[in-house]
Design a protein around this nucleic acid. Structure first.
Lengths: 199, 199
DNA sequence: GTCTATACGCCGATAGAC
DNA sequence: GTCTATCGGCGTATAGAC
């Protein structure tokens, strides 16, 4: 054991640690109400210098956060699509994921559901133009073609299904619904799927 | 006609005009990205002095906006409750109102559905604690007791119903759905009501 | 009561010492 | 590579002239 090193070098702040702190603060106080000093303090650093070592400026930090979250979401959507065939199974897999994220990574879900991203990331794509979202619309389109989902505007089906799912999760994140998201999963899935299912 | 007066006194900016300009800018650029100078310029005034004549500061202006909107919403909810008896009729009336507001007063709906109010109005009640919202939950509770609505957690029923309604309207406001809200009204009402209706 | 000037604070960002 | 000091800009808010 290298005791000396442990004493001298207390923390070795990684890029991910910075992003996690920023995410936490952005999703609680909001982007404009959190200063870089706030982020540094949450990291128990006395300066903002650590941040500038890793990011050009505040916006780039937020942008990196955006990219990381949507990239990982995209990978998950691909994974779910590959492991399931029917649209109902794929949507169930996605619903499971969103509920799990709400309980295990609420900050990420707050980033997705609560924050007004275009207010501080005007150059990034709107959620509805992102890869994972477009893929979900595709899933629904295929479900309509295969006869699993009733024949309505895919965007509208999307609005119904994720209206129910996301709104429930939003209430969980805000503490209006007092149980863990997981407690609502089965009933919410049932209701959400039924709004778009054929017959 | 008092021509002389018309020439000299070009504009007589009222409190409501200021609030409307602020609302427009808050809902497009966001609260923190709109300066008081922006508001003044939209009013075609060269100074912010007009604003300070009517409001103590920026926050009080936003607060007044909040109060006005929720007060008027509360009055509408009372009106709808009085004119209808069944929960289904009351919810239909409310849905009609929200769709009409989306087409005719999109800024107001953006204020309600898109803005993250607690970020700049931390002292005001969360939407779910406001009078009109509590009354809607009451409507749903009565619907459950009367057997119109299936027996689930009223908050959850609320999440389902307004998940569908509000999410659809959000997509209309963002231009993802390209028709007027009114074009979707009947199908959305049908789907939303069916998620909570008994049988 | 409308406009000018300005004070003040806050925060993002940089430069430079160690 | 971490900390100090500081600059510059912006936006709120005020004070005072007219």
């Amino acid at each position: 054991m290298d005791q000396e090193k442990e004493v001298i070098q207390i923390r070795d702040v990684t890029q991910d640690e910075i992003l996690l702190s920023a995410l936490r603060l952005f999703t609680t106080k909001g982007y404009f109400s959190t200063s870089l000093v706030d982020v540094a303090q949450l990291l128990e650093m006395e300066n903002t210098s650590v941040i500038y070592q890793h990011f050009k400026d505040k916006k780039m930090m937020a942008s990196q956060l955006y990219v990381n979250i949507f990239d990982s979401l995209d990978i998950s959507v691909d994974d779910i699509s590959r492991k399931n065939e029917k649209a109902s199974e794929q949507l169930k897999g996605l619903t499971d994921l969103l509920f799990k994220l709400t309980d295990e990574a609420p900050d990420v879900m707050r980033f997705l559901l609560v924050l007004k991203l275009d207010e501080f990331l005007p150059d990034e794509k709107q959620i509805h133009e992102t890869l994972p979202f477009l893929k979900v619309v595709k899933i629904i389109e295929r479900g309509i073609n295969s006869g699993e989902i009733r024949a309505i505007d895919p965007q509208l089906a999307c609005a119904y299904f994720f209206g129910i799912v996301n709104n429930t999760l939003r209430l969980v994140l805000m503490g209006v619904l007092d149980k863990k998201a997981d407690a609502y999963l089965s009933q919410v899935w049932f209701s959400a799927w039924n709004t778009i299912a054929k017959k």
